[in-house]
Design a protein around this nucleic acid. Sequence first.
DNA 1: TCAACCAGGATTGTCGACAATAGATGATTC
DNA 2: GAATCATCTATTGTCGACAATCCTGGTTGA
Lengths: 233, 233
Amino acid sequence: MGAPAAAAGATIADRVFDQLRRAIVEGEIPAGSKLSEPVLAERFAVSRGPLREAMRRLESSNLLEWRANVGARVVTLSSERLLELYQVREALEGMAARLAAERMSDGAVEELKALVQQHGRDVARECWQAYFQQEGDLDFHYRIVIGSGNLRLVRILCDDLYHLARMYRCQFGMKSDRARDALKEHALIVDAIAGRDGELAEWLMRRHVRASCANVKRRLAAEQAAAGTEASS
Amino acid sequence: MGAPAAAAGATIADRVFDQLRRAIVEGEIPAGSKLSEPVLAERFAVSRGPLREAMRRLESSNLLEWRANVGARVVTLSSERLLELYQVREALEGMAARLAAERMSDGAVEELKALVQQHGRDVARECWQAYFQQEGDLDFHYRIVIGSGNLRLVRILCDDLYHLARMYRCQFGMKSDRARDALKEHALIVDAIAGRDGELAEWLMRRHVRASCANVKRRLAAEQAAAGTEASS
DNA sequence: TCAACCAGGATTGTCGACAATAGATGATTC
DNA sequence: GAATCATCTATTGTCGACAATCCTGGTTGA
């Protein structure tokens, strides 16, 4: 699910890649901080070779920024970049929904329906809320992207962007106060996909992503304002 | 323009990255072929360390496929993958056009207009045709993506997808028999951007990409058919 | 004859050491 | 006292060698 594991016949570089990514995404290594190769090599008990390979891959995933002869830093999160991320997601997930409506197998559509119903029960019970619901949300989006049958789309979204999105969630501490609305939107999207209406599915998905984005914007603005009054008091 | 150069204070791995990418994109190293680290290290006169780093980056750019303990292969081009690429481009470049219409500076819009007019003159003269026009096409799309002001979009399209697109062009030997139509579509897109009509710009850009895709599909089908008769004759 | 098994060779993965570069520290000069 | 420059240290970039793994071909057994 959370896709942590390095594959079976994995190499050291693979393992370090996973571990380091987790540490960065979850904020254990703070955003913007410098990564020292000797330090990390010791921490993971590997030599610098595999470590550098892992870091290079993290760089390609847009989690690290590399400067020649200087070193690597964890990317700094900013609200601008977060909004950029939402714009890209809107475009790509919209396309994914359209394709999924056209090509997803009937079985997969049924599973998707079941998933949304399960989420509905979870939200109604209002118990596991926040974090768990978040994972559920990701699961929903994952399935549609995979259902698109477009491997390049899957790569871009699942291998790169979703990790970044998770990083923002972890570090900006976003709990989902939008679960109820989001769930409704999910249900509509599933209906469109089940009805094989690609155009509608895309439109709904794009609106859904924009709504998430607007919610985040609102929260950021509120935070900003709170910080402002705090500073001036 | 073609963005070949490794930056000034570049490292060996950077240089090898650029050279190797060029060799792969232009088909000097054939698609699907295996890359031997010792052989390549000798060819570029570097040790395997920087070479492996370059290869890892090529892998992240989706130009290589890596299997642990086995080695790296150049990706194999297929028509399915090409169509996938067009779908992703449609989504992303559509979004780019929308954002460009909203945020591109007036100066940049003027330059874009001038570019399209220049292309118009080139096509009318019908001299440099094919290759040059192709580069011109890429230039047009580049500018719009950059004009979107969305750095993540720029990265995905310019750093990865466009190289792949160029690889298909080089190796499927696609000459542009669509220059005239494409040019008209470009002109419409520029008008929409200049009119700050984001929705229209997106719609036009998506249609433009779909038209390119349809053209490629037609050609592939024709090739397929030709190969079929050839085989049965 | 065919399948499974077992070296042999070659390639990839990993490591530690050396070279080159950037940034910091302190001395010198205006 | 501040700015500049030289030196010095720590980090990164690169290399060659060793260890682990996979593919190939031949061999043996049923």
